[in-house]
Nucleic acid binder design. Structure first.
Lengths: 215, 215
DNA sequence: CGCGTGAAATTGTGATCACAAGAAGATCAT
DNA sequence: ATGATCTTCTTGTGATCACAATTTCACGCG
């Protein structure tokens, strides 16, 4: 998870590669089961094997990538059981994060969330799955940052990371036509300071879609 | 987290080092703020810098170790806020794990848990903090394995890992005289098939002690 | 056409080295 | 005695290479 502090403008090569791969995986820009190699990553990002290996190993440690018995690395193909577990984890962690964010959810934040929802509508209009996933996660992250609970947010992001490649399939199945209604309910509950309503809306939002992935 | 499958009897050097360090950290065998270096790890485990670096980087990715802006690695020194967050995460995840374990908690498991509690009493009698922490976590892990939710168990273990160095301090403050009463309550609730009682006992067990760490 | 075998290519792991950066220690000046 | 500066030592990062293991491909046979 992103715990280390390294605010310098020129981070290490491995850090750079790690962040780019992480973003790509989290936003569903990679399909489940896709293989990655050290030499392939080295070529793509113009680095040697050492930072490539560090990056891949780090993502494996976070569950974003899986490693076979022979050390080969690929994006995970999640079983139904795994998807259900990760959905349950999202429900547990994100509902708590939303509750903790509520006391600091003022109008500026609510307006920011509404703006992000507009971006979701744009991604839907463009039929852009990666853009949709990215903007959806931005919506949640923006809210949860107000919880001021970095350990929990890190855990939530770890779950998003593991779900990333699978989320792409979800988008295809939902064939989104409009912004998820639960986002509107989340925003309403924030405006009203309605904690039970907020918890219910977040739980519904994070679990409803994932149910459709289980075949 | 321990997600990759590598059942071969001779794992990689980096995997070996990683597991040993991970166990040491999780069981409170290292104090908060303790520094580790690549060359130091290399000497101690008789490996070169490459597996040493891989192991440390992996533990950093899991939050077990922290990395400074200059790349130096050490065990984390947790703030009160961080401790509260991790306790809350334990409560969220472990309560859910216990619930999911209940349907498969038969007499053999219950007897196993009682045996482990006897080991806890031994560790207390020996005034052995590391043994105490290890046996306590064994108690929880043994129960949660029955939940058959590896993603959740991995998350729980990640939290234990982050708390490891701090747990050592907790042991000092509690000055344990007897096996935690909540373990007895957990066992009773399992025998009775009492889910609400089990949830309450687990929540109390995982949060009560950690409250004493917050000064 | 499919399967098996062998060879070649590709892969991951670990060691080593060079280099840059940071930390620690020593010395000098106020 | 304390602070600043300089030097030395230690550290982390990345590149490269060797080697073992795995995978892929090609060819031959049934």
């Amino acid at each position: 998870m992103l715990t280390q502090t390294r605010p310098d403008p020129s981070p290490s090569a491995h850090d750079r590669v790690y962040r780019m791969l992480r973003t790509r995986i989290m936003h569903g820009d990679m399909a489940p089961g896709q293989a990655l190699t050290l030499r392939g990553i080295g070529r793509e990002f113009d680095v040697s094997m050492t930072p490539a290996r560090e990056s891949l190993r780090r993502l494996v440690a976070e569950g974003a990538l899986t490693m076979s018995a022979s050390g080969r690395v690929s994006t995970p193909e999640l079983s139904n059981e795994r998807i259900e577990e990760l959905a349950a984890l999202r429900a547990l962690i994100e509902v708590e994060l939303a509750s903790r964010a509520l006391p600091r959810a003022h109008m500026a934040l609510i307006e920011r969330l509404q703006t992000i929802n507009t971006g979701l509508a744009d991604a839907i209009a463009r039929q852009d799955p990666v853009g949709y996933i990215r903007t959806n996660l931005e919506f949640h992250r923006t809210l949860y940052l107000r919880a001021q609970a970095p350990a929990m947010l890190a855990m939530a992001e770890t779950v998003w990371l593991q779900l990333g490649p699978t989320m792409r399939m979800l988008y295809g199945r939902l064939r989104h036509k409009e912004v998820p209604q639960y986002h509107r309910l989340i925003i309403s509950a924030l405006k009203a300071g309605d904690e039970p309503g907020l918890r219910l809306a977040v739980r519904s939002d994070v679990t409803q879609g994932l149910k459709m992935l289980q075949t």
